[in-house]
Amino acid sequence: MTTTAVATPVVQFVDVQKAFGGNKVLVDVSLDVRPGFTGLIGPNGAGKTTCLNVVSGYLQPDAGDVRLAGQSVLGRAPMEVARMGVSRTFQTPRLIPNLSAVENVMVGGSRHYRHGHLAELLGLPSARRDERVQRERAYALLEELGLDHPDRAANAFPVGSQKIIEVARALLNDPVLLLLDEPAAGLGAEDVDRLVNGLNAWTARNPEAAVMIIEHDLELISRLCPTAAVLHFGRIITSGAPKDVLRDPVVVEAYLGADVAAGD
């Protein structure tokens, strides 16, 4: 893997706090996410998805800051954050049900379309080229991530495959920060392998990019991520290499109550 431990963080959480009513969901979360994979694990309801929502502009933290390449994302709408190079997937996949997998992926390519809709309407060659290029890239990404039948309507796929389509959609924009919310949930072992290979291939091509991955499949985290952080009741209780983290007694205790079998 091409990760360098000393690389500057792509995104920094600085003492982030977030509460819903009296429910403190994030408590002083500080975390540096560097290029390459970073795992974010923790029992159900720990606040993992909330972390992603705070970075991607859907939630504003009550206190603290989130910096993307040194620039604060606070006060920015999701679209602005996306334009800064942040792509994400959702825990429950959100696709256009009747469009094909490929076309769903193409929706994610907004940063790569040079032409406006007027050029598209007039059928200018540049617009056609853009469209063709993005279509080819979308096919390639889906193939790399191991999705068969890319021309099938999105709602014809099982949930696991829909998540793969979402991953491809997020990748099409060539993000500097990719946020994945349980991408492997609902996938069989073979499909998980293909997903891992696809993601590895993509990061190999984009060594500057950071991937923050939430996953309950701890084995997948161990395989992909050089570092992982553990969130428990809104606090980062520990972080480090997955092997060490998973052996940490605090983590074991956090997970015991949550009834999650450690992977291996």
């Binding site: 502009g57 859907y58 679209m79 942040v86 792509s87 256009i96 469009l99 940063r111 809709h117 924009n173």
Partner: peptide, 28 residues
């Protein structure tokens, strides 16, 4: 036909089916 079968139509449908979540795709 040209607009709806291309990027414009796709994006409109994304807005219809995904609502505000299209923000994460860089779409207003």
């Amino acid at each position: 036909r040209r607009a709806l079968l291309g990027r414009f139509g796709r994006t409109l449908q994304a807005v219809r089916d995904l609502g505000q979540l299209t923000g994460s795709l860089g779409v207003s």
